[in-house]
Amino acid sequence: MYKWYAIKRILKGVAMYALLMFTFSALFNTVSETTLKGQIEEQVRQESQRLRNLKSEQIRAFQIDRRDQLYKLYKLDRPWTERVVSRAVNALTFKFGRSTIIKTQKGEREVIKIIMEAMPRSILLFTTTIVFEIFLGIWLGLKKAQKPGGSLDKSTSFITMVVYGLPSWWLGMMLIMIFVYGIKLFPSGGLHSVPTPGGILKVLDLIWHMILPMLTLLLIGFWSLGFVVRNIVLGVLQEDYIMSARARGIPENKVLFGHTMRTAAPPLITMALLTLLASISGSIIFEGIFSWPGLGNLYWIAIQQNDIPVLLADLAITTGIYQAGLIFLDLTYGFLDPRIKIGGKA
């Protein structure tokens, strides 16, 4: 049953995510505790400044008291294992605490709000790109598979190899140099112009800012996607039933989209999504180049400002999105490939 398969897969994904959070918590325990202690010191100092009419000994006593209190609150007095576990649980329940420097546009310091402000922007950029990329990639792959060894197939396969190790962020830098510095056609980065226009112009302004990053991702991504699609479709096209469909006189387009695509769909979707997941993980650098204020750019800012809570929370959320992508991938695959639904072997 697909339902059981889905539940099993989701549970496994959640368990994996929890395990990853424990790993991160253990790996980055020292640095996050140092930061936390620094924040506590800051808080204690601020609070003791408010106490005007006390003697210095009393203030000192208050400080020690308050520090102990806060240490207890954040479980810093507990043994190592317990601290790691509690921090992992905090991460799992999205309690990331407060940032040290970075603020949201409204000036809030809660890490989760900072993340939530950045996330929709990343999603906007990447989903739009993904949609374009999938359509272009499948179209190119089918065209390539129709005439394997033809000039289109050869030339695009060559481009696939040429761009294989091309870092998307470097291509972004080049495009910025050409289209922003050379021909002044696009803005150098960011989400909106300053000052931001209102109404419909605001949307147009956003699209204008999105074109260059999208172009960069597409120029890198869709060749390789086309190559993958070609290889999968080519495998299917060699099957006997395709030959018989062609022999029966079914139009080529129907053979391609009706007969071939149905069989090729599960591996195709898997490969497409895997490629895209990889590109999202690589987008950290990419967003920074275009100063697109999403989750990737947040890494840059957090590293520059040495804001550890934001950095770790960003890592947790990115991992979560990646995990969700993997689950989604398996669920789609299972949905499209009936052998998996009934528990047979793929």
Partner: peptide, 17 residues
């Protein structure tokens, strides 16, 4: 477990820390 690690984010945070 290893395949579900997002490489670059972890590598970057690890290097930063």
């Amino acid at each position: 477990y290893f395949i579900s690690l997002p490489v670059l984010p972890i590598l970057i945070v690890f290097s930063a820390v």
